[in-house]
Simulated assay, not measured.
Amino acid sequence: MLLDPRAPRFAAAVTTVVLAGALLVGGTPLLVGQAVVFAITAADPRLGPYGWLYRTLVAPRLAAPTELEPAAPVRFAQLVGLLFVAVALVGQFTGLPVLALAATGAALAAAFLNATFGLCLGCLGYLTLRRLIGRPMTARVPASS
């Protein structure tokens, strides 16, 4: 499965807003909601609500992408995001606010880097793991016309 690389970047922008809100208001419901989004998107990026918003509201107004990216790195990045939000929720529910703040802040930083600079840390981690096990893959492929 190949994805328009602008969709995960859009999703990262929405995630940045959600996680910033969670940090500002101590929003456990926001973290739970973001965890659900991460879980759905990790299962299938086409089913993620932020991807749906991108395909419905943004993509029709843009030219077709010139390159596509494989879904596997995006799925891995969503799993990493889910892990960080899960740690944040553990911190919230066990009375360890520093853990919650640190994990939320780390997830926020990663989402911000992706949204702002197109630097997906989880995707890079996935591609690095693939290289380490001797099964490298390309990050992007040209889109067919």
Score class of each variant (00 low, 15 high):
Arg61Ser: 13
Pro73Cys: 03
Arg46Cys: 10
Leu31Asn: 03
Arg61Lys: 15
Thr66Cys: 10
Tyr54Ala: 13
Pro60Asp: 05
Arg55His: 13
Thr56Glu: 09
Ala39Asp: 06
Ala71Phe: 02
Leu62Tyr: 05
Arg61Trp: 06
Gln34Glu: 13
Leu53Pro: 04
Val58Tyr: 08
Ala72Val: 00
Val36Ser: 00
Pro60Asn: 08
Ala59Gly: 08
Thr56Phe: 12
Arg61Asp: 06
Gln34Thr: 08
Thr66Val: 15
Ile40Cys: 08
Asp44Val: 10
Pro29Glu: 07
Pro60Ile: 04
Pro60His: 01
Pro65Ser: 11
Gly33Leu: 11
Glu67Gly: 11
Trp52Val: 15
Val37Asn: 11
Ala59Glu: 15
Trp52Pro: 03
Pro60Ser: 07
Ala42Ile: 05
Gly51Met: 06
Pro73Ala: 01
Ala39Phe: 14
Pro29Leu: 09
Val32His: 01
Ala42Asn: 00
Leu53Thr: 10
Ala59Asn: 06
Leu57Val: 12
Val32Asn: 02
Thr56Gly: 08
Arg46Leu: 12
Ala72Ile: 00
Gly51Asp: 07
Trp52Glu: 11
Pro70Glu: 00
Leu57Lys: 07
Phe38Gly: 02
Pro60Leu: 03
Ala63Cys: 03
Pro45Leu: 13
Pro45Gly: 11
Gly51Pro: 06
Trp52Cys: 07
Arg55Gly: 11
Val32Arg: 05
Thr56Tyr: 10
Pro65Arg: 06
Tyr54Asp: 09
Ala39Tyr: 07
Leu31Pro: 00
Ala71Glu: 11
Ala64His: 11
Gln34Arg: 05
Arg55Thr: 12
Thr28Lys: 07
Tyr50Val: 04
Ala64Asp: 14
Pro49Ala: 15
Arg55Glu: 14
Gly51Tyr: 05
Val37Asp: 10
Thr66Ser: 15
Leu30Asn: 04
Gly33Lys: 02
Pro45Val: 13
Val36Lys: 00
Pro49Asp: 04
Pro70Leu: 01
Pro29Gly: 07
Gln34Val: 04
Val58Trp: 06
Thr56Lys: 11
Ala64Gly: 15
Ala63Glu: 13
Thr56Arg: 15
Leu68Arg: 07
Ala71Ile: 04
Leu53Asn: 03
Thr66Glu: 15
Thr28Asp: 08
Asp44Arg: 09
Leu62Cys: 12
Leu47Gly: 08
Pro45Gln: 12
Ala59Tyr: 03
Ala63Phe: 03
Asp44Ile: 11
Ala39Val: 13
Pro45Tyr: 08
Ala72Glu: 05
Ala43Thr: 14
Val32Cys: 08
Leu31Trp: 00
Leu68His: 04
Val58Ile: 14
Ile40Asp: 12
Pro73Asn: 01
Arg61Leu: 14
Pro49Arg: 08
Ile40Ala: 12
Pro49Ile: 15
Tyr54Trp: 14
Leu30Phe: 05
Thr28Arg: 10
Val36Arg: 01
Pro65Glu: 09
Pro70Asp: 00
